[in-house]
Design a protein around this nucleic acid. Sequence first.
DNA 1: CGCGGCTTTGATGTTCATCAAGTAAAGTGG
DNA 2: CCACTTTACTTGATGAACATCAAAGCCGCG
Lengths: 250, 250
Amino acid sequence: MTSIIKFICYFTQGQNHRIMSEKIKSPNCEICSFKGLLFDSLKPDELGRMNSCKDQFDFGKGEIICQEGDNINSIIYVNRGLIKLHKDVPGKQSQIVSIARPFDFVGLLSVFSKTKYFYSITAIEDSAVCFISKVCIINEINRNGKFALDIISRMSKITDDILETKFALSSKNLRGRIAHILLDFANNIYKSREFDLPVSRREIAELIDMRTENVIRIMSEFRRDKIIKINGHTIEIINEDMLQKISVAG
Amino acid sequence: MTSIIKFICYFTQGQNHRIMSEKIKSPNCEICSFKGLLFDSLKPDELGRMNSCKDQFDFGKGEIICQEGDNINSIIYVNRGLIKLHKDVPGKQSQIVSIARPFDFVGLLSVFSKTKYFYSITAIEDSAVCFISKVCIINEINRNGKFALDIISRMSKITDDILETKFALSSKNLRGRIAHILLDFANNIYKSREFDLPVSRREIAELIDMRTENVIRIMSEFRRDKIIKINGHTIEIINEDMLQKISVAG
DNA sequence: CGCGGCTTTGATGTTCATCAAGTAAAGTGG
DNA sequence: CCACTTTACTTGATGAACATCAAAGCCGCG
C-alpha cells in the first residue's frame, strides 16, 4: 500500500532545488531491516520519533542526489543500490571521495561540522536512499548517550576508512593502486575472488586518482600476466599473491 | 609546586612502551586556558572528573609521542608546541597526515572507531600535550548530550579539514600544491603575509606528497619570479594574487 | 673540528598524462 | 527492431612532469 508522488525536494534547501525521483511512502523504521545497524540503542518510542524524521527516495542510475554546496540538513542512509561521493573541479578530472553501499551512512561525513556539502552525491546504480533529518539526530543525541556513542563511532569509522585508503593509495604507483583496489573489492567488499565491478573504468580512475586509459592498460597487463581474468565487468583474481606483492611494492 | 618525574608510559598500553619526557604534575583543567574550547558544556563537577582523567607531558623536538599500531586509550590535546601525525611506510617517503597546533585535538581522529593508531605522532617543536582518558570521555558523553555534540562536531571538523585539504592537493601539480600550502600558512594559520615556516622543506614535501628537491626548486622559482621572499625559514608573500592563480590553475 | 642533517642546483631517467584513432556496447528515436 | 548516436572500452605513440641520482655548500651540535 505505497503511494508514489512526484515532488520538488527541499531537503537540501540548497540554491538549486532538484526534482527528486518518486517518493516512496516511507516504510516504517521499526520494520526496516537495517535499523539494527545504527538504531540499536533506541527504544520503541525513540525509534518512532526517528521514523517521523525521515523520508525515503528512489534514485535512478546517474541521478544526482545532492550537489557540492547544498546545505546539509539530513543524514543520508543507503538502503539499496550504490552511490558515489564525488568532487568535480571544472577543467579537471573529477575525484570520487568514496562509494557507499547499503548499510552505509554517507551524510555523517560532515553533517555536524559543516553547513554545506563539499562533495556531490550521485547514484551509480538505481538506489533507495533514506534522508534522516539532522535536527532529529541531534535531539536524539542529546537525549541518549548510548546513541551518541553509536553515531560517533560510526562517523569515526567512515572517515578513518576513507583517510586510510587515500593515504595508502597516494604512496603507490599506478600498478600498485590497481592491485590495491582489486584486492579491496575481492576481500573487503565482495568477499570473493570473482566479482562484478560495479563501476566503470572511468570511475575506478576517479577513485584512485589516475586516468581511464591507464586503468585499462594496467588491467590488461594483469590479464596478460595471468594475474586476473577479465570478462567485461566481471573480474576474477587468479594470482592473489602476486597482486598482493604488486600492491605492497607499488 | 610541580614535581617532575621520569616514568614509563603505559598510556598507550602498546607493544612498545616508550620512555616519556618529564611528567608535569598536571595543571588543573579548571584553570587551563584552553578548557573553553571543548569543555564549555561541562559543569564544575564534571570538569573535576575530567581533570582527574588527564595527564600532561612535555615532549622535546623530535620525540615520538606515539607510534602507528599503538593502542588508542586517550585523546591527545596539544597545549603548546607543534606535533605531526605521520605515516611511515618502509622504503617510501613518509607522509604527514596532519599537523596539530595548540587547541587541536589529535586523538579524536580515530579514538572511537579504532583500537590502534594508523599513524604515528611526533613533536616537531618542544611541546606540551594532554592525554585525556578515552574512558572518561565516553562516560561524559553518556552523561551529557551537549558535550557529546561538542565532541562530534569537533571530530567532524578535523576529519573534514584533512579530507578537503588532501582532495584539493591531489588534483594539483607541484607548483599548485606549494602555492596552496603557502597561502594556507599565511591566511589560515598565521594570518600574516610574513611567517616562519615551522617545518623543514622535507616535512613540507611529506605533507603535500612531493620530493624535498622539488619543494626547494619551486620555492626558488617563486622567489626568482618575485612572488615570495625567502630568508631561511621565514617566508614573505609578495604577490598573493599570483600565488592564488597558481594554486587554482595547478 | 668534523660529522650528520638540511638545503640547494644540475643532469638524467621513468612514470604517467595526453592525444589520437578505432572497436565494442549501450541507449534512443522512428 | 533497426539505424543512429552516444558512451564506454582499448591500444599505440608522444611529450611533459616529476622522481631520482649526484655533488657541493651550509649550519648546528657534540
